[in-house]
């Protein structure tokens, strides 16, 4: 049997943490792009198309916010394969986390757009701006300011969410923790290290998000 020193444990966990970072960034960026599309679909003017788009987005948000990420991961991994699509643990985890993040980001951003006073739309409309100009020139800049802090804050949720990718065999920080536990039989030391590494990744992001929020509130 192999002997693990504390340094071996930490070194392997840090190596595995690279995948946590990579998966988080992919899910955050792709989820953000998809979330943006969803939000735009929701701001379409009320008409047949707009109503349908709104309903679809609402359904997407309801399903992905209303079911456990763990189940979404299982379904992405084993479900897509049943449909004849070959997906690796990588792709399934990235896909599930992207869809998950898109639903939450779309909700966050919708809230930000709605936080811009109704009068701003009316004022912009009275300046004869088109609907898309109103959104782009008047509403979006204000909504963006409100959105930055909660969006950065949500990145923390994404990073923590990647821990669940371990259950479909994706080797990231949490999975490496379980594997090393088995080789060392020192669960407490290993999981304490795992928790500390997550904290080291997440805390700066949360602190940054809070600072942004304070600065925004101060400026108002």
């Amino acid at each position: 049997m192999v002997e693990f020193t504390l340094w071996d444990i930490l070194r392997n966990l840090l190596l595995a943490a690279r995948w946590t970072v990579a998966l988080s960034l992919i899910a955050f960026v792709a989820g953000g792009a998809l979330g943006l599309l969803l939000v735009l679909a929701r701001t379409l003017p009320a008409g047949a198309v707009g109503r349908w788009a709104g309903r679809c987005v609402a359904l997407h948000v309801e399903v992905f916010q209303g079911t456990p990420l763990l189940m979404q991961l299982f379904l992405a991994y084993f479900g897509l394969a049943l449909l004849g699509l070959e997906v690796s643990a990588w792709l399934a985890a990235a896909l599930a986390l992207t869809l998950h993040a898109s639903a939450f980001l779309a909700e966050i951003w919708r809230g930000c757009i709605e936080a811009v006073p109704r009068g701003q739309w009316d004022a912009a409309a009275s300046l004869a701006l088109t609907r898309s100009e109103q959104l782009r020139r008047v509403i979006a800049p204000q909504a963006l300011r409100i959105a930055i802090a909660p969006t950065v804050g949500f990145l923390v949720q994404v990073i923590k969410g990647t821990a669940l990718a371990s259950v479909i065999g994706f080797i990231e920080l949490a999975k490496a923790g379980t594997m090393i536990t088995n080789a060392t039989f020192r669960p407490f030391a290993v999981y304490a290290c795992v928790a500390a590494i997550y904290f080291a990744m997440c805390y700066p992001v949360s602190a940054f998000s809070r600072r942004l929020e304070r600065r925004l509130n101060g400026a108002r």
């Binding site: 923390v156 923590k160 969410g161 821990a163 669940l164 371990s166 949490a174 923790g177 669960p187 407490f188 999981y191 304490a192 795992v194 928790a195 997550y198 904290f199 997440c202 805390y203 949360s206």
Partner: peptide
Amino acid sequence: NTPFIVQLFV
């Protein structure tokens, strides 16, 4: 700032 699954394992 830590995942729930890790808290559970600890």
